[in-house]
Each structure stands twice: as C-alpha cells, then as structure tokens.
Design a binder for these strands. Structure first.
Length: 273
DNA sequence: CGAGCAACCTGCATGC
DNA sequence: TGCATGCAGGTTGCTC
C-alpha cells in the first residue's frame, strides 16, 4: 500500500496523540514481520517519552531519548490510534500503549512491514542511510533531478521507484506522475531533456500533494489513524485503468509489466521519443 | 558495478 | 462448490 502520501497521512494522524506521551508498554503478538521484532523492545522503550516523530521516505520514526522505533508499513500495514482495551482483530500484531490510555496499533495482513529498534541516528540506520531525495523537499529541484538522471540508463519508471534515487514514490504515484507529464514509463532516464524533467518534477510533487490532501489512496487495506479510508483512488487517472479511455484523448489505456509491477500508460499521450 | 527476479505473506478475484 | 492460479500501495538480497 503505503507510499509516501499514505505514510505522511499516518504520521499526521498519530502525532497529536503520541508526541510527548510516555510509553507504558509494548505488546508484540506476532514478531514475524519483514524482520523479527526485537524481543526486548518493551524493555528498551518502556517509561520513555516520544520526543520526536518523523517520516523519512516511506519509513516512520518514533524517537525517544535513548533511540528510535522505525516502522515501515510494507504493502498492507496500517497504524491506528485507539483507546486501550479495544478488542483485537486479525493481524493486529503490535500495540504501543501510552500512559494517556491510548494505544498505537499496527495491523499488517501480509507482514511485509517492519518494526525496528535502533540506538543509531535513524538516518544512519542500514535501511535508511541509502535513501534518495525526499520528493516534497526543496532538495528535489530541477537542478538535482537533472544531475541525478544523467547517470541512469534505466527506464524512467524504474528510476522513479528506486528509493536510492527518490524516497517514497511507489507504483501508483510513478504511474500517475508519468502520465501527468506525458512521459512513457520505458523512456530511458538519461534521454529525457531538461524541459521534460522539469515537467516530471512538477507532476511528482503535484500528485503526491494532491493525494495527501485527499487522505491518500486506499485500494484495499489502507486506513488512516482514525480507521478512515483515503479518497485519492477516485482521482487516479491511469493506475488500474487498463482498457479505459484516456481522460485526454480517449485512446484505450494499456498495461504491461515492468520489473514485477503493473504499468499503465496511454499509448497516444505517452509516446517514446 | 547494474539488471532481473525470487522471495517474504495473506487475501481476493477469476476461471475451470 | 472447490481448487488452482495469479495478482496486490514494497524491498531485500540473491544470481548473472
């Protein structure tokens, strides 16, 4: 599921409830996520206050004085703020209980998500230190994108989805941003002229911002911290639209596979050049 | 090095 | 109805 907008929505939803609150317990019902959840996680954080929360790419970081909890939602994860004693549902793997009587509950049917403890600076953690540019930051500029793309011969969609280049763009938003800027997903990255790169840059920021505004995209599992679904799926123009008419030219949208991911494009609007 | 792809999991839609 | 197949917002870590 969760790409950058969904993780951002989750962060905004949980932060007001947990920032500066004291952790009173961590319950791990199933430690088998992408990596095993550390056995002593409760001893590490019990009694500590959350002093900072942040999103880095698709990762959420909950900082306490002595280290950080790093959370990734994988394909199907969600985090909810609930009252203590809320009955457990299937795939509710972890609860962080707080002294103010709320819990932060991780549900993740596919268990591709992660829940890690680190005493390093989170940016230095193995999984985060090679992340590329934050696409909504000022560092994601025309100049930097031009610099970054000239080294890569990969198809542009593969480039966009590689978190070493850009952190947080996944399959939905790569498809949408390429359609919005009328670039073919297979266009070799280093063959894209500067004016087209600038338009791609704007499309990426636009699509991510619009999705955040709509509470993210819910295809299946994603819910925000209140348990509500996102609404941006209503505004998707290309993702999942195989054989539907292109909103600009009515040409039927085509689908193929790049890597192992579904790729949608309008053969008329997104011609290779 | 990079590119390609299997693997990690459950659930759901589809087709025989 | 039942069973097999394939696919799903991600990413690591193999092989070549």
């Amino acid at each position: 599921m969760p790409e950058l907008p969904e993780v951002e929505i989750t962060l905004r939803g949980i932060e007001p409830y947990i920032l500066h609150q004291k952790i009173s317990n961590v319950i791990v019902r199933n430690h088998k996520l992408r990596w095993p959840v550390q056995n002593d996680i409760n001893q590490q954080v019990n009694g500590k206050n959350i002093c900072k929360t942040q999103r880095i790419g698709k990762y959420l970081v909950l900082k306490v004085e002595t280290g950080s909890i790093i959370i990734h939602l994988g394909m199907s994860g969600s985090l909810r703020v609930l009252k203590n004693n809320t009955p457990i549902k299937k795939h509710d793997h972890i609860d962080i209980e707080f002294a103010n009587n709320i819990i932060l509950r991780l549900n993740d049917p596919r268990r591709f998500g992660a829940f890690l403890w680190t005493t390093e600076e989170p940016e230095q953690h193995k999984l985060l230190k090679n992340l590329g540019i934050e696409p909504l930051s000022n560092k994601f500029s025309a100049k930097n994108l031009a610099q970054l793309t000239k080294k890569s011969k990969s198809p542009i969609k593969t480039f966009l989805m590689n978190s070493k280049n850009i952190a947080g763009v996944g399959n939905i938003y790569a498809n949408e941003a390429l359609f919005d800027s009328k670039i073919n997903p297979n266009q070799p990255t280093n063959s894209i002229p500067e004016n087209r790169l600038n338009s791609l840059l704007k499309s990426i920021k636009k699509v991510l911002r619009q999705s955040i505004k709509q509470g993210g995209t819910t295809l299946k599992d994603f819910v925000n911290s209140d348990g509500k679904k996102g609404y941006f799926q209503v505004y998707l123009k290309i993702y999942g639209k195989k054989n539907k008419p292109c909103v600009y030219c009515k040409t039927p949208i085509e689908e193929n596979r790049m890597g192992q991911r579904s790729t949608f494009y309008c053969p008329n609007c997104q011609k290779l050049f």
